[in-house]
């Protein structure tokens, strides 16, 4: 049986206790909103996308350590990156979390701190916590592209 330390790596607890890019952005920033109806976790992702670059990102909402730390690490990973890179990152993370999507993800993308989320796969009920912010980011990117 996997232990708690497989799930709650040091880096995850650090992002949970000290979330990065926490806050909101005013329009013209776009806003994506994600809910986990089973547990009530909520994530809001605010984005400023200019010339194909994610110039700024802020994250609000509330939830468990996995959903909140995943969101915090996500903000760090995509801020300043191109939209294309951000979308590739979403596909890469979902693949890592064993969520099947169409197409092959680019596994050469370096995961950095997000490597810590690999342990979540051993706790299937928590995968939905880890993926919530990434689905919300995808929605916000779609809105920004409109």
């Amino acid at each position: 049986m996997p232990g708690l330390e497989d799930l709650y790596r040091e880096i995850i607890l650090d992002h949970y206790k000290n979330p990065r890019n926490r806050g909101t952005l005013e329009p013209p920033a776009v806003r994506g909103e994600g809910h986990n109806p089973l547990c009530g976790d909520e994530i809001e992702v605010f984005l400023i996308v200019k010339d194909g670059i994610v110039e700024d990102i802020k994250i609000a909402g509330q939830g468990c350590s996995i959903s909140q730390s995943s969101a915090s690490m996500m903000g760090v990973a995509v801020k300043g990156k191109t939209v294309e890179n951000a979308r590739a990152f979403i596909a890469r993370i979902k693949h890592m979390l064993s969520i099947d999507e169409e197409g092959e993800p680019d596994t050469s993308i370096a995961l950095g701190d997000l490597e810590a989320l690999t342990g979540v796969v051993k706790f299937p009920v928590r995968i939905k916590c880890a993926v919530l912010s990434w689905n919300t980011l995808a929605e916000a990117l779609d809105i920004a592209a409109e």
């Binding site: 049986m1 708690l4 547990c39 009530g40 976790d41 468990c64 350590s65 996995i66 706790f123």
Partner: peptide, 25 residues
């Protein structure tokens, strides 16, 4: 401590509780 995280630690001890909104939002 978020209820899901509480329930995860409890689960390591086979203590089964429900964490969530209990269908009473």
């Amino acid at each position: 401590v978020h209820p899901h995280d509480v329930s995860q630690v409890l689960d390591q001890h086979n203590v089964c509780v429900r964490a969530g909104h209990h269908c009473a939002k």
